Simulated scan of single mutants.
Amino acid sequence: MDTIQLLFLAIIQGLTEFLPISSSAHLILPSAIFGWPDQGLAFDVSVHVGSLAAVMLYFRKDVVQLLTAWFGSLAGKHSAESRLAWLIILATIPAVLAGLMFSDLVSTVLRGPWVIALTTIVFGLLLWYADRNPPQVQDEKSLTFKQALFVGVAQAIAIIPGTSRSGITITAGLMLGLTRTAAARLSFLMSIPTILGAGTLMTTKLVKSGEAVIWNELALGAVVSFVAAYLCIHFFMKIIARMGMTPFVIYRLLLGAVLVYLFVL
């Protein structure tokens, strides 16, 4: 990749990994418009490493508390934090199963532009519906195990390109009565094991494929993705309570319309 393509895609990945606007919808456009070649598996791994580092750094206190409490629960010391840790583990299981069972189907059948356009629009409207229907007064620690599983199933649906992992998990959280901030926090905390799992799977495929690795490109991609993702999380958490989801819904509808115009009509 040339430097412009590398920087552009790394920024896009870092931003769209955590905003409810679909990363796959954004990564399909540059290739189509500019004729860029596929960025390759190694680059995908590097930008996921950057995104993972960003969310773990931003929520470092939460991560330490959750891990400490979880290990404590194994010794019989239970708390609200250990319970949340178990909820996150439970909510991750459906995504893991979906990835193992349907990854081939997604990579061969569901990566078409018409699928991404449709899911971008449909799940954008669903996000709008969830955001406009109060009451949203609970925090993430108040969820039941059944509700956590509901959010986990929603996250599993995000294996379909264009859905947006953060978008559908925030939608599910809002439907369950979480505040916007709590829904976003839960979504970001859930992203840690999910991105870690996806990154591990991609790394395994990369090693098996024997694809050439250009380390300076990977390092630059990881750093740029990290910066973009960290800034995205920081400002999103600052403004989400008062801004709501409507701007992202409008953006998704416009993006979906562009995809339909370019690839479907």
Score class of each variant (00 low, 15 high):
D2Y: 03
I4Q: 00
L7W: 06
F8H: 01
L9P: 04
T16E: 06
S24A: 11
S24W: 10
H26E: 04
S31W: 01
P37A: 13
P37H: 12
D38L: 04
D38P: 05
F43W: 01
V47T: 08
S51G: 05
V55M: 04
L57C: 08
F59I: 01
R60W: 13
K61M: 02
V64Y: 08
V64E: 05
Q65V: 02
Q65P: 00
W70N: 00
W70I: 00
S73F: 07
A75W: 09
E81D: 13
R83V: 00
R83H: 00
L84G: 01
A85W: 01
W86L: 09
L87V: 06
I89S: 04
L90D: 05
I93G: 06
V96H: 00
A98S: 11
T108P: 00
V109E: 00
L126P: 05
L126Y: 12
P134A: 07
P134Y: 06
P135A: 14
Q136G: 03
S142R: 13
Q147M: 07
Q147I: 06
A148K: 06
L149R: 06
F150Y: 14
V153H: 06
A154Y: 11
A154P: 08
I159D: 05
I160P: 11
P161F: 10
G167Q: 06
L186C: 07
L186T: 04
L189H: 09
I192H: 09
P193G: 06
G199A: 13
K205D: 15
K205F: 11
L206R: 15
V207Y: 14
K208D: 14
V213D: 09
E217F: 14
A219E: 09
A222H: 13
A228Q: 13
A229D: 11
L231D: 03
F235G: 07
F236V: 15
K238L: 15
M245D: 09
T246H: 04
P247S: 12
L253P: 05
L254Q: 03
L255H: 01
L265D: 03
